[in-house]
Amino acid sequence: TRAPGLVEVARLLLDAGADPVGRTRGPRADWTPLRCAVAGAANPDIVRLLLDRGAVPDDHDLYLAGFGDDDRESLRLLLGRATDVSETTALSAPISSGDIEAVRMLLDAGANPNQPMPADLLGTGHGTGATWPAAYAAVQFGCDAELLDLLLARGADPNAAGPDDRSPYRVAISQGRADLAVVLRRHGARDDATAAERFLSACLRRDQAGARQLIAEDPGLVDRLTEDERGAIELAAERGDTEAVRLMVDLGFPLDARRGDHGSTALHAAAYSGSAETVRLLLARGADIEARDSTWDSTPLEWAKVGSGLRPQTSPDPDWAATVRILLDAGASTESFELSPDDLKPASAEVADILRAAGVGG
């Protein structure tokens, strides 16, 4: 609602001699007015004004515009003024968010789909200097088959491995994404999946017969799974796939297995995604209701609270109110957090009411 007034303020300042390309000092050093205009709540009218007054977009501006909430208008404006985007790393933004149209816009403007993308721009924990190839990143972020097909059709290497030395095909198989595996093979990817990855694929696809057949052929298979491979149960829980979780528990996957950068359990993932029935199953099988992740030191109940506000779309039928009630009824502690009006990740109104009734302050 303030956008039109902000545009006029910017125009008045520029008319009075304000520098359209001046850079900030202090904690956010080296930010320009243009970067501020595209980051977060983008204001394409200010972007247009700054470009008309001499601002020139750089690679990080394109990257931030790739997350824009303005129907990609700021990205469109920046690409119209950018001189050469062949080496841009901005593809990492729409790839990580699954925005196929923004990916298409960057590719149409000349972005190289084989330009390595810094892991820190993708929000991963692989360390400074690590890079991800485009197809590998798309699969890791659970992209739609259409987005992956677009990248590969434009020349992305289907076999380029990530920092863990796994190919996109191996990642797709280990995530149970047969649709992505088909796309990769159609574009020339090698079938290099390991026996463990094929086993994970069977589990995540709820293929009980296939999973048990692989164990029969290799009885020590489950015991040899790596920590990250055991954490595939968290992926199933995040998807709200109760039957896949049931199969994996029956086959010996540990309930306290942790996956990814946050050090969370399957119960954390199910709670965050509002997968009430999966939460119920995990608790019935003995999951630790007070387990804490290694990033925020938070319990599954806290993850459910945050999920209710952010509303991730990983589960097909999320119900955060039911999830929170199940956790509370099972004895989840409410002592470790409160409801604050300044919370950057607040609970939904319905969940906040449930938590207040259970004694959570704030």
Rank of each mutant, 00 (worst) to 15 (best):
A330T: 12
M105N: 00
G17E: 09
P316F: 04
H262K: 11
Q115D: 01
S315G: 01
R292D: 03
K345H: 15
D256S: 09
I354C: 12
A18L: 05
A349H: 14
S308C: 02
A330M: 00
L75T: 14
S275Q: 02
Y136R: 08
L12S: 13
R212A: 05
A352V: 12
R186N: 15
T194C: 08
D58R: 13
A134Y: 01
L225P: 00
R166Y: 05
S264Q: 05
W296Q: 06
Q175A: 03
G110Q: 06
V245M: 09
A332T: 01
V182S: 13
I173P: 06
F337P: 05
A202W: 03
R185Y: 05
P44E: 13
A41E: 15
F67Q: 08
P44A: 14
S298A: 15
L51T: 12
G68N: 02
A244G: 11
F141M: 00
P219M: 02
E227F: 07
E227R: 15
R356I: 13
R258Y: 00
L235K: 06
R28L: 15
G17N: 12
L6I: 05
D45F: 02
D261Q: 11
A332E: 09
L152Y: 02
Q140E: 14
G220T: 11
P300V: 14
V171T: 12
F199T: 06
N114Y: 01
L75D: 11
T265R: 00
R185D: 11
S308H: 04
D228L: 08
T83L: 10
P158G: 10
L251E: 13
E350Y: 08
E87L: 14
P20Q: 06
V47N: 04
L282C: 00
G68F: 09
A321W: 03
G176K: 10
D179M: 08
A193L: 01
P113F: 07
S167L: 08
A232Y: 05
G240S: 01
Q140G: 04
L77H: 08
T131G: 02
D58A: 13
R259Y: 13
L339I: 10
T83C: 02
A232C: 10
G309M: 03
L91A: 03
R72N: 15
T194P: 02
E229R: 10
L49M: 04
W303A: 06
P20Y: 07
D192I: 00
L121W: 06
F253L: 08
L214Y: 06
V360E: 07
D317P: 05
A216T: 14
R177I: 03
G252K: 13
D165F: 14
R166C: 06
F199Y: 15
A216V: 10
D223C: 00
I289D: 03
P44F: 12
D317F: 02
T334W: 01
A161V: 00
R23H: 06
V182H: 00
T194R: 07
L184G: 04
D30S: 15
A65L: 07
L355H: 07
H60P: 00
L77Y: 01
L225A: 06
D71V: 00
R2T: 15
V47K: 08
F253V: 11
R23V: 14
T278E: 04
G80W: 03
D256Q: 07
D317H: 05
G54E: 12
G263T: 04
A29C: 03
Q208M: 07
